[in-house]
Structures are given as structure tokens and as C-alpha cells.
Computed example of a mutant assay.
Amino acid sequence: MPTISEKPTVHHVAVQTSDLDNAIHWYREFFNATSTWTLDRFSELTQERLPGIIRLTEVELHNLRLHLFERSVFTLASGATDAIQFQHICLILDSHEEMVTWREKWFVLRDSGKFHFASDEEPTEIVVDDDGMESFYFRDVNGLEFEFSWFPKGTV
């Protein structure tokens, strides 16, 4: 039997959107992400798994790739908090000051009027856990939740 890695690594996270151009623009502005490639032709398997897929664009932010894809037909599960889904993605920051800066940047982009947001929910306040970890949660233009966290030295 071939040897397998004991520690798989993440290649990408797929993000479904109803407005690919809006999502690409937001990820570029918020995360300073770079678009690396786009597809508009798909295999039969992809078309079976994602009916109505129109385009897919990969964006990179540091060592994380996001595959943003648009479909012509899908259902938004409004209020379906018990649906099986990825709940959020947590990204680690280097300082409390970075947390404050990222949170402020979210408001600047929201207030710019350049983007359409699926949710009116604002980022949470920055909270500190019992172990000293700081974090806050926010949603992208599609309503998907992210968490930014910072672990002061000695708390991880």
C-alpha cells in the first residue's frame, strides 16, 4: 500500500457566488488577492456536481487559494442555520493592530458603495478568549463567514 501524508494541506477553498465579478473585485480589494486563472468550460463531472456553473476564477491570497465560481441556478439557504455547511474559515494575524486594521478595512469597503453584500451583518467586535486569543468574525460579499484571530506569544 502506498504511503500517504499524515498531514494533508489545503489546496483551495471553493466559494459559490451569484455575482462572480462582484466577488472577484471584493477579494482583490479586501484581501489584495490576485486572480490567477479563469475557466468557462467544464468537464461533465463538474457540470453534474454543479449544475449551471458559468465561470470559475482562482484568486490567491498569500498561500491560500480560493476558487470563486458562479452558477446560473442555485438556492440561497436564507435562515437555514442548521444546514450542513462550512461554518467559517479562520485566518491568523500577527498582531492586535492588524486585527483593528482589517476590521476597519471591511467598513471602508462596505461604505464605498462599490460592492453588493448578501448580508447586512457587520463584523463582530474584537473579543478576547480566556486564553488570550483575540478574534473577530465578518462576512464576505456572498455572506460567507471568516474569522481573523491573533494568538499572543505563549497562548498557542
Results as ranks from 00 to 15, higher is better:
I89F: 02
L64K: 07
I4F: 13
K153N: 05
T101P: 01
E48F: 11
P8N: 00
L76V: 14
V156F: 10
T34R: 10
R28V: 12
R41F: 09
D120R: 13
E60G: 02
P123N: 01
Q47R: 12
L39V: 06
H67M: 12
R49G: 08
T75F: 08
F117M: 09
C90Y: 03
V127P: 04
Y137D: 04
V13D: 04
L109M: 07
E125F: 04
T38D: 01
E44G: 11
G154H: 05
G79L: 09
L50F: 14
V13I: 14
S78K: 14
R71H: 06
V108A: 08
V141P: 07
W150F: 15
I92T: 12
T38G: 01
R65V: 13
G154I: 01
K105A: 06
K7R: 11
E122F: 00
T81A: 10
R28S: 14
M133Q: 09
I89D: 06
Y27F: 10
Y27N: 02
L144A: 03
T38V: 04
M99T: 06
D94T: 13
P8E: 02
H62D: 15
G113H: 13
H62P: 08
V127Y: 07
Q87T: 03
V156Y: 10
F136V: 00
L61D: 12
T17A: 06
Q47H: 00
A80Y: 14
A83H: 07
D120H: 14
K7P: 05
F30V: 05
N63F: 15
L66I: 13
S72Y: 09
E70P: 00
M133R: 03
T155F: 02
F151T: 01
D130M: 11
S35H: 02
I4H: 11
F115H: 09
D129T: 08
L68C: 12
M133Y: 08
V100S: 06
V15E: 05
G79N: 08
V141G: 00
H116L: 13
R41T: 13
V59D: 01
A118M: 08
R103W: 03
R49L: 10
T75H: 09
G132H: 05
V108C: 05
S119L: 03
E70T: 07
W106H: 04
F30L: 04
V100K: 05
T38F: 05
T3S: 14
Q47K: 11
I4Y: 12
L66A: 11
D140V: 04
F115P: 08
G132F: 06
A80S: 10
D129E: 11
F42W: 06
G79A: 09
L109W: 10
K114D: 14
L64M: 08
E29M: 09
I4S: 11
L61V: 15
F107D: 05
E70F: 11
V128E: 15
P2R: 15
S149M: 02
E125W: 02
E98F: 13
D120Y: 14
L50Y: 12
E147H: 04
I24M: 07
R65N: 15
D40H: 12
T34M: 09
A80V: 10
I4M: 12
T38K: 01
V73G: 11
